[in-house]
């Protein structure tokens, strides 16, 4: 069997740490070569006087609520919390354009369960720059939004009855699935009882974001019957939210994701769809940005006019004084 198939079968627990590391480093090797082996440590040394304050506050608010039930992250002085903070702040210096976005805390938290801070940093870099495109976590999350539109197309193609049903009862699937993609299924599928989350991460790190679509469709397919049986928005929404949380049958999920859903859209087809939606989203935000600027300019003119008037009144007043 190929390595891909082996990983789909689940990385044995004792090798997970080592294999995750290797998969991550294989994606970012060129960046490490360019930045040097001590890059992460250097970034950490820059932390005390770097202008990342904008994100510092938000990060500190999220630290204690990333994995509150895990002992490693339970107390504010704990190693896990300190590492989480360092990695997220270092990333803001590394990539000031992206900075911190809620969701990254979960990705780093997951990485820290298996790796040290240094590796966790490179995992975040790999996820944001190599696995995903760098606009995935940008200021409008255009990459993530484009993927949700691609997802809708794939659902319409592969699970057309479900897709029509959701449309009919006015459910926008991305209100549920966006999180699944952005946090790579963290808090969406079971972690403790079955290894569902870890198995998804195994496949993600090995094969890249296409598996996120596969798993999403597999979860929907597993629940297709129940979804179609329900005819009101609320019960379907409820079901969608809760069904992923009880996906304990990981072998069943893997089988649906990689076998039953065949033929799955090709990587290239997904890529060209992504590019198409990305362009239209970017245009939308550009238009919006221009509108905003025009509005701000008008506001400024109005206030300037008001000031001028005030000025002339004061001037007249001074004159009469």
């Amino acid at each position: 069997p190929t390595l891909k198939q082996l990983v789909r079968g689940g990385i044995p627990d004792q090798y997970r740490k080592q294999i995750w590391r290797q998969l991550v480093y294989s994606r970012v090797q060129d960046i490490i070569t360019e930045k040097g082996p001590h890059y992460y440590r250097n970034l950490c040394n820059m932390l005390p006087d770097s202008p990342v304050t904008r994100y510092r506050k938000q990060i500190s608010l999220d630290l204690m609520r990333t994995m509150p039930s895990n002992v490693k992250f339970a107390t504010s002085g704990s190693r896990g919390i300190m590492d989480l903070q360092d990695v997220l702040l270092a990333f803001c210096i590394h990539s000031p354009d992206i900075g911190y976005c809620q969701g990254m805390n979960f990705i780093v938290g997951m990485a820290l369960l298996f790796m040290d801070a240094h590796d966790a940093f490179w995992t975040l870099v790999a996820v944001t720059e190599r696995y995903f495109t760098s606009n995935y976590f940008d200021h409008n999350l255009v990459g993530a939004q484009a993927d949700q539109q691609v997802l809708k197309d794939i659902v319409a193609e592969k699970l057309s009855t479900t897709s029509k049903h959701l449309d009919a009862i006015d459910i926008e699937i991305s209100t549920v699935t966006l999180n699944w993609f952005l946090a790579i299924y963290f808090d969406a599928v079971p972690f403790m009882v079955s290894n569902t989350l870890l198995r998804i991460w195994d496949c993600f790190l090995m094969e890249g974001p296409k598996v996120l679509f596969r798993f999403c469709l597999a979860i929907l397919k597993m629940n297709e019957r129940e979804i179609l049986m329900k005819n009101d928005t609320i019960s379907v929404m409820r079901h969608l939210k809760s069904c992923a949380k009880i996906t304990y049958d990981i072998e069943g999920l893997i089988k649906i994701a990689f076998e039953d859903l065949r033929p799955f859209p090709h990587r290239q087809a997904i890529k060209s769809k992504q590019a198409f939606y990305l362009t239209s989203l970017k245009e939308k935000y550009k238009r919006r940005e221009l509108q905003k600027m025009a509005f701000a300019e008008r506001e400024q003119m109005v206030s300037l006019n008001a000031q001028l008037k005030m000025g002339s009144i004061i001037f007249i007043y001074d004159f009469y004084e």
């Binding site: 809620q102 979960f106 549920v176 999180n179 952005l182 928005t233 609320i234 929404m237 409820r238 939210k241």
Partner: peptide, 29 residues
Amino acid sequence: EPTIGAAFFLKQWGPYNVAVWDTAGDERY
């Protein structure tokens, strides 16, 4: 935990169903 995207809650109000959508605070959302 920080809400990413949005979370959905349901409340019964007399004979009515109320859906409560809790949204993410992060500006990017």
